[in-house]
Simulated assay, not measured.
Amino acid sequence: MLMSKSDRAAKLHYMANGFRVLSTGDHVVCAVSGVRIPIEELRYWDVARQQPYATAEIASEALGPQ
């Protein structure tokens, strides 16, 4: 069975002001909560860890005090 684009997680390279798509898909998975994040709604990630986060609160928790 072939997978449609909507059934596959994208692989991204996170940069300071955006990201580059390495493998196409329609979502990424939050590194902390496991929630699917549609690519068009992705706003929070960590460049050093190369991890996406579903919300600002989750990102703040994951990154800890700076």
Rank of each mutant, 00 (worst) to 15 (best):
Met1Val: 15
Met1Glu: 12
Met3Thr: 12
Ser4Leu: 09
Ser4Phe: 07
Lys5Ser: 11
Ser6Asn: 07
Asp7His: 10
Asp7Arg: 04
Asp7Glu: 13
Arg8Tyr: 04
Ala9Ile: 06
Ala9Trp: 01
Ala10Ile: 12
Lys11Ser: 15
Lys11Tyr: 14
Leu12Glu: 06
Met15Thr: 15
Ala16Glu: 05
Ala16Arg: 10
Asn17Gln: 15
Asn17Ala: 12
Asn17Ile: 14
Gly18Arg: 14
Gly18Thr: 10
Arg20Ala: 06
Arg20Gln: 12
Val21Cys: 00
Val21Met: 06
Val21Pro: 00
Leu22Val: 15
Leu22Gly: 04
Ser23Trp: 15
Gly25Gln: 03
Gly25Pro: 07
Asp26Gln: 06
Asp26Ser: 04
His27Phe: 12
His27Asn: 08
Val28Leu: 01
Val28Ile: 02
Cys30Gly: 08
Ala31Cys: 06
Val32Ala: 10
Val32Lys: 13
Gly34Phe: 10
Gly34His: 14
Val35His: 14
Ile37Trp: 01
Ile37Leu: 09
Ile37Arg: 09
Ile39Met: 12
Glu40Asn: 13
Glu41Cys: 12
Leu42Arg: 02
Trp45Ile: 04
Asp46Leu: 08
Asp46Thr: 11
Ala48Gly: 05
Arg49Tyr: 10
Arg49Gly: 03
Gln50Leu: 06
Gln51Glu: 08
Pro52Ser: 03
Pro52Thr: 01
Tyr53Glu: 04
Ala54Asn: 09
Ala54Val: 14
Thr55Ser: 09
Ala56Gly: 01
Ala56Glu: 07
Ala56Gln: 06
Glu57Phe: 14
Ile58Thr: 08
Ser60Ile: 08
Gly64Asn: 07
Pro65Phe: 07
Gln66Asp: 13
Gln66Phe: 15
